[in-house]
Design a protein around this nucleic acid. Structure first.
Length: 607
DNA sequence: GCCGTCACG
DNA sequence: ACGTACGTGACGGCA
């Protein structure tokens, strides 16, 4: 006798249906086109957890919960074998909330999900990328006015979902599948109304498969190397710490900006430069200035650098090495940023240090598997190329067509000198100007980051726009359109609402205008690399290569390739990235190669 | 749980 | 006069 528990929405209760035999036909239903599902697991880590049960919904108002590894109650042990066929059937669409998680956990069970996905979390994100929370609880509340119990609420003081009696587990689990089913219709209808269907099917939906593959693969990290680094950092920190106490004439908590303020601005009577909400700023730019007058700020800066490196990276990364795989598996979040970029967390592998000696030494610990190498491929000046395309600016297009160093070119323009006469310093200034343009430049912002007067900054901006009138009109056109429509969009039609664009408060309005300028540029670059990821991934699969995409860092992709595949992998990667989109400027990708991430960076520079 | 700080693109 | 570069995530301090 097997148990099949059913949740019936009409009387809002769950019950256990006794059925003589578990009938696959009954669950599958003939002519099944789509179904929604949700997996309950032992914890929250898809690479270590096992499935406790699965809820399934084939039609609205009725969902099933299939206990697979419940401690309390009978289980249907062959359910996964039966379900494998429908999960792997390309012609059956899968509906769920955060399907990347379910795909990952099903893979641990040997199930390779295929076919069209309707991910209500991703759908909600595309409809409103400003929404801070796309959890099922929050999306159901917004679109269905339905208050759903949180997982922890249901769990209570029990440790695992498996410890919840089936009678209690069923309504909770079944509700998730039901909600996803209901939300799919509502969200998808809205998606079509907003003309976001193509963006979903061409980019975000296939990307779910790519990201789950990357997370599943992970990256190898040499914890021995990091351990040695930690010991070295520890001794440096001890020295700097006692040096700081000597200079200050007392011991205090260096990590407390509040205590540091007292030392700097009261005891030593140094001049405060900036205020924060809570007091005087002790940020890097301020300490950099103060360092000219006193020796303490420099030591604080040194301390902070090393402390950051040690606590955030060197000591933390080894703890996140997965026991089963021996590798680090980050989460790539697809529904976080307002612009369409990905983010990475637990750990964030998109902000691993790169500058200075410590950057290299940390990246030396990111290594390829035995017999493989790491290949990095990064887009050169992606955002400025996107700006060139979006604005149609002749100067930018010409520069990229001729493959001229763009910052040097800008320098020659804003300083009014020939390209050959541009100095390193002028190039540095021009680089900042170029960044500023992409961020929605203001004289204040530019003056702050260049440490010049607002007047001088305004002159740079003026001369830039004189040389690039199309960029100026493009920016004006974008802001104007944002004011009329209330949103801006990327080349692929991704939208970001800018509700503050018509604010009467000047500060808020100007900030909104900068978002309106920056979002189409940053967002189009995000669209572009996402397309490249999908195309590279497809090609690698189709050609049966073992090369694996492991990281995305906004304009860079990192791969792990078997040594005998290096040449073909490089070719596929470069080609697919440079041809991800046909723009009015060429796309350029630099390739680096090495046994560690540090080596890859060095090689990329010299290649 | 927020704030300041700082790592990355 | 005011407060301002765009997008993230993680850490320690502190209430």
């Amino acid at each position: 006798m097997k148990q099949f528990s059913l949740f019936d929405k009409s009387n809002n209760s769950a019950f256990i249906e006794q059925s003589g035999d578990y009938d696959a036909e009954q669950a599958e239903e003939p002519l099944l086109k789509q179904f929604s599902f949700d997996i309950e697991a032992t914890g929250r880590d898809p690479l270590s957890d096992t499935i406790v049960g699965i809820s399934l919904c084939f039609e609205k108002d009725r969902a099933y919960y299939i206990p697979i590894r419940h401690t309390l109650g009978q289980n249907i042990s062959d359910a996964l074998t039966i379900l494998k066929d429908i999960f792997e059937d390309k012609s059956i669409s899968k509906i769920g909330h955060n399907l990347k998680y379910d795909i990952l956990i099903l893979r641990q069970e040997g199930i390779n999900v295929k076919g069209t996905l309707y991910d209500t979390m991703v759908l909600s994100y595309l409809l409103n990328p400003n929404k801070p929370d796309h959890s099922l609880e929050d999306v159901a509340l917004e679109y269905l006015s339905h208050k759903k119990k949180g997982f922890n609420e249901v769990l209570g003081n029990r440790t695992s979902f498996a410890d919840i009696p089936i009678e209690e587990a069923t309504p909770y689990a079944a509700e998730d599948a039901l909600l996803a089913m209901e939300l799919k219709d509502i969200l998808f209808k809205r998606l079509k109304e907003e003309n976001l269907e193509k963006l979903y099917f061409d980019i975000e939906m296939p990307l779910i498969y790519v990201l789950s593959d990357m997370e599943n693969r992970g990256i190898k990290v040499d914890s021995n190397r990091l351990h040695k680094l930690s010991i070295e950092l520890e001794s440096y920190l001890k020295n700097i710490e006692s040096n700081i106490y000597n200079i200050a004439g007392e011991r205090f908590n260096i990590n407390s900006p509040k205590q540091l303020s007292i030392i700097l601005f009261e005891k030593l009577r140094l001049e405060p430069r900036k205020k924060t909400k809570t007091g005087y700023s002790t940020g890097m730019d301020v300490l950099e200035e103060l360092a000219k007058k006193h020796e303490l700020p420099r030591e604080i800066l040194n301390y902070r650098t090393l402390y950051k490196i040690k606590t955030t990276y060197v000591d933390t990364l080894p703890k996140l090495i997965n026991k089963r795989t021996g590798r680090i598996h980050t989460s790539f979040n697809q529904t976080v940023t307002a612009t369409g970029r990905l983010s990475s967390s637990e750990p964030n592998l998109q902000n691993i240090p790169v500058r200075g000696q410590w950057g290299s030494r940390i990246r030396e610990a990111f290594i390829a598997d035995k017999g493989s190498v790491l290949i990095s491929a990064d887009y050169s000046q992606i955002e400025l190329r996107v700006l060139g395309h979006l604005s149609g600016d002749k100067g930018l297009i010409d520069a990229f067509n001729k493959d001229i160093d763009i910052h040097s070119r800008t320098a020659s323009e804003i300083f009014g000198i020939p390209l050959e006469s541009v100095t390193e310093e002028m190039r540095r200034v021009a680089k900042t100007v170029n960044f500023g343009i992409v961020y929605g430049i203001s004289p204040f912002g530019l003056s702050e980051s260049l440490n010049i007067s607002q007047k001088e900054a305004a002159l740079f901006i003026e001369s830039y726009f004189k040389k690039h009138p199309s960029v100026k009109t493009y920016i004006e056109k974008t802001v104007k359109s944002a004011k009329t429509l209330g949103y801006v969009s990327t080349l692929m039609g991704r939208k970001r609402q800018i509700p503050e664009i018509n604010s009467l408060n000047q500060n808020i309005r100007q900030q909104a205008e900068r978002l309106a300028i920056n979002t189409p540029i940053q967002g189009t670059a995000a669209d572009l690399i996402k397309i490249a990821m999908i195309n590279v991934w497809d090609r690698l699969n189709k050609e049966g290569l073992k090369t694996k995409m492991v990281l995305q860092i906004h304009d860079e992709l990192l791969f792990e390739a078997p040594e005998d595949e290096i040449e073909i992998a490089k070719e596929v990667i470069k080609y697919e990235m440079e041809n991800a989109m046909k723009l009015s400027v060429p796309l350029k990708v630099n390739i680096g190669l090495g046994k560690s991430w540090a080596e890859v960076d060095i090689n990329a520079q010299t290649l």
